[in-house]
Structures are given as structure tokens and as C-alpha cells.
Simulated scan of single mutants.
Amino acid sequence: MIRFGIMGAGNIARKFADAVSKVDRAVIAAVASKSTERAESFARQNSIPSFYGSYEEMLKRDDIDAVYIATTMNYHYENILECLKWDKHVLCEKCMVLSHREAEEVFALAKQKRLFLMECMWVRFLPKVQKVKQWIAEGRIGKLKLAQGNLGFNASFDPDSRMYSPALGGGALYDLGVYLIEVLSYFTDQKLTGIEPTVIRAATGVDETVNLNLRYGDYLVNAQCSIATKLPENGYLYGENGYIALEYLHLGNTVKLYDKDRKLVEEFDQGNANGFIYQVEEAVSCIENGKLESEVASHQMTLDCCKIFDKCFE
């Protein structure tokens, strides 16, 4: 049984707690927040036995095996280091860190201490994404050549909000682009070889709208993300003999396979289960088997994504 502690008591942590409750070999043992009142309320609402008003109080417990970090992005780097210092395995919400240097540092420390560390790119673990991976491996659309995807919504401009504040890790890339990068790159084994970004910045300096052209060998990815306009939020994978549509790329349940004449060949619906369940199952399995990283959401996935961030903000 893997005993989790939760760091941060916001809405995303509720979804994680619900997912853990549906996994046989895991349990939430405690939650910590900078606010004791908030931690207590979260614990009561989610049937968690212990709560703390400081992270260190929870981390010093020997019976906590792993920590799920659900704080705001600007704190992830220091939160990960603190968890590793206390010898805890770590699952950290996206974006795990905000630069390639930070990613290299936390992964190196985790490996040195023989601890599991994973960015929670939960979409990679979804049954629909695994089905797409299977279709491509089976050659159902021939050799994969190109991917397109977009995610965007119109966030009201507020310089102090999480979306628009540089201090809080605001911007379209950290909030939305990470999905496009880390999901669309999952369908190739080729290495990242080219990054060509176009970035439109808001008055606060954060990236408001971004167009990315990425190259993985002979596989090209074109992606757009924005916090200034609503986008269709679909993804497409094009092969030599057909294409695959991921409707509502990260939150939808359906994927469709088409032949080269645009005829629907197969459709897969994964249902409405809590999508976090699958990444929890993976993390539990990895920790139980002494693995330091997941093959699905690998360290290289995060390192490549952070390299793209650095290029966009240089």
C-alpha cells in the first residue's frame, strides 16, 4: 500500500484524492496547506485522516511514501526539492518546473536519492491516448508525418491573476501548451530536433498566444495555445494512409480513425471515469517495483518540454 500526502488543497487536488480512492493499492494519509483551516476543510471533505498547516510537518512523517504536489506552478521547483530532501517519491502537477535547468536539477537529485519523480501529464495515460498509440504502432494510418493541435480560452485580463501574473507562472504555454507538447510528442520515438516559436505577449509580459512548430526527425508538430481567444481544442495526427482525430484533445473521451479518403474506420470512447486514475495506477506500480521514472511520462518528456519553454522565452 502506497501512502500519499497531498501538498496544496485546491480543486485539482480534489480530483487526485478521488482518483486515489479508486485505486486498491493506494491511500491518502494526509494533506498539507499553508492554511491550517484550508487543510482541515479539505481533509474533512475528502475523508483524509490527517491535516497540517505546514508542508514540513507532513513531510517529516516516516509513514508517508509519496507526495502529490498541487501547489501553483511558481512553487513546484522548491516543493519538489523539499519532498526529495525528506526522501519522498514525488508526483508533481504540470508544469512540473518552469525551465530546463530546474528540470535537470530535480531529476538528478531524485536519481541520486533513488526516488520516483514524475510530472503528472495524466492525458498520456488515458485509454483513448493508449488506443491512439496502439493504432499508430499497428500502422493503421501508415507512417506518422504530421500533428496539429490547439487549446485556448478567453481569460479576462487581470494582471494579478494566475493566468496573467509572471510571478505565479502565468501564460498560455505553462497552462495549455504543456498538454499540446507532451501529448503530441508521445506518438513518436524520434528525438526533438527543431523548435520554432512565435509568441505574442500580454501587457504583463506573459505569453498570451503562442504558435509552435516542432520537429522530431521527420515528424512535424504544429500547435497553438492562447489565453486570449477560444480555440476548438482538437488534435489531429496525419499519416501516409489516414489520420486520427482527438476531439477535445485533453478533456474529451473520443478518438476517431479515418482512412486516406476521410472515411471513418473506427471510433473509440473511453467513458467518463476520473482521468487521474490511470496515472495514479502507473505511479503506484512504478514505486512498488523500484522504478525511478515512468516509461509513459518519462523524465525526457519533461526535459524536452522545458527546453521548448526556454526557447520560447529566450
Rank of each mutant, 00 (worst) to 15 (best):
K34Y: 08
L184I: 07
N213D: 07
S99V: 07
K131I: 00
G5S: 11
I6S: 04
V132C: 09
V296D: 00
I6R: 10
L212M: 11
S50I: 08
E104M: 14
I287R: 11
A13C: 05
Y179P: 01
V23R: 06
Y77W: 12
V20H: 03
G205Y: 02
M58H: 01
I200T: 10
L249Y: 06
H299W: 12
D304A: 02
A43C: 06
M73G: 12
G239K: 00
D160A: 10
G177R: 13
A66W: 01
E182L: 02
L151T: 06
S226F: 04
S156K: 08
H100V: 03
C306K: 02
T198G: 01
I48Y: 06
A39N: 03
A103W: 00
Y219N: 11
I141S: 02
P49C: 07
E57I: 04
L237H: 02
P166M: 10
F313N: 13
A283C: 04
L251V: 14
Y243D: 06
D304H: 13
R162H: 15
H89R: 04
N272H: 12
L220T: 08
A43L: 07
Y236E: 15
C225L: 09
R44Y: 10
K60T: 15
R140T: 00
M118S: 07
E104F: 00
L184T: 10
A297W: 05
I308G: 02
K311I: 14
F276N: 15
C120F: 05
N222Q: 15
E57C: 08
E240T: 15
A297I: 05
E282L: 03
I48C: 11
G53R: 14
R25A: 14
V296C: 03
E233R: 13
V183H: 01
E196L: 10
C312R: 05
L303I: 15
R201W: 00
A39S: 13
G8S: 07
A32L: 01
D261N: 14
E138Q: 12
Y52W: 09
K34C: 02
V67G: 02
S21G: 11
M121K: 06
Y258I: 02
Y243V: 08
A245E: 15
L212D: 08
V199G: 12
M301Q: 12
C225Y: 01
W86F: 15
C306R: 08
F187N: 05
G177A: 07
Q130I: 00
Y174P: 07
N234E: 14
K111P: 09
Y77L: 13
E56I: 15
G8N: 09
L212G: 08
G169C: 01
Y243T: 03
R38N: 14
L126A: 08
A32M: 04
I28S: 01
N79F: 06
G252P: 00
L115Y: 02
A273M: 09
L257H: 01
T198P: 00
F125Q: 03
H100W: 13
A19C: 10
A155T: 01
K34Q: 06
K94N: 10
K145L: 15
L251F: 11
W122S: 13
G252K: 05
L109T: 10
N79K: 09
Y174Q: 09
E93N: 11
E102A: 14
Q112T: 11
D158V: 06
E266A: 11
S47C: 06
A223I: 04
G242Q: 01
L246Q: 08
M96G: 15
L257S: 01
Y55S: 10
D158A: 10
F116E: 05
